[in-house]
Write a protein that binds this DNA or RNA. Sequence first.
DNA 1: GTTCAAGATTGTAATAATTACAAGTTTGAA
DNA 2: TTCAAACTTGTAATTATTACAATCTTGAAC
Lengths: 139, 139
Amino acid sequence: MKLTFENLKQELKEKNVSLSHQRLKILEYLVQNRCHPTVEQIYSDLQKDMPTLSKTTIYNTLRMLEKAGLVKVITIEDKETRYDIDTKDHGHFKCESCGNIFDFPIDIDPLIPEELSEFKIFSKDVYFNGICARCLDIA
Amino acid sequence: MKLTFENLKQELKEKNVSLSHQRLKILEYLVQNRCHPTVEQIYSDLQKDMPTLSKTTIYNTLRMLEKAGLVKVITIEDKETRYDIDTKDHGHFKCESCGNIFDFPIDIDPLIPEELSEFKIFSKDVYFNGICARCLDIA
DNA sequence: GTTCAAGATTGTAATAATTACAAGTTTGAA
DNA sequence: TTCAAACTTGTAATTATTACAATCTTGAAC
């Protein structure tokens, strides 16, 4: 299933989640901005078109989307939480220099050790930190 | 190299880090409590023997140990940062039920994709969330 | 179209982990 | 013993997130 606004909207409808104007705008923003934005980024960008938008609404909506399984919470940074509309398993690389977060493919399932066989795993996160190729070139 | 208090103390001495009473106590605590403690846990436990110990000192010491490469920062939880004296690569599993954090072995290096070959990787973290076997049994 | 209750949004206040900072203390070399 | 550098401490500031109450919106039933 492709991560389009329409598909995700349909998925929410099927889950009986009410689709307010704000929620749809936030969802649309996440689809169009695949940079793993923070609440602050979402807020300051959407505020331009919706002056009365509240940060609390963004927090509430993101929590709702997480519970509905449409958003993945990324805690690769100490301070601010980031959000990813792509919930399929993949790794995240954070460049310490430019601050960008890169996606990369990784299939970790074959490596899960025997000692976790009796554990129920809800989510798997792979976080790398370092310097990206571009920043290495510039330096 | 085994993770004993004496070995780590020696390593700090070689790095010309001054070994105050407080720092040594915190280091010793980390060696003896391999449960990935929070600052709060370290503080409330050590305070019993050192009534004047300050949380700021714990924060400062942990930052120093991290910079010296003797401690790994674990951000598997949203709110509180945890600290691990074992800096060798391994995975962390957090049980949503009992809150415990389990270590598990995993060698992710063979899976690093081609597209990161030009990136400089400082740290690799693997975080799983779920329910541990014991909590599944009880339920 | 109107009514109305359930649910969503908003702004403010509260919470809590972490950091900044300045004053006091310790340390170790000369 | 002296003294400067470094460490510790307590308080205050910072800041992401949550709690909450008042207001607004929504959509189904009539």
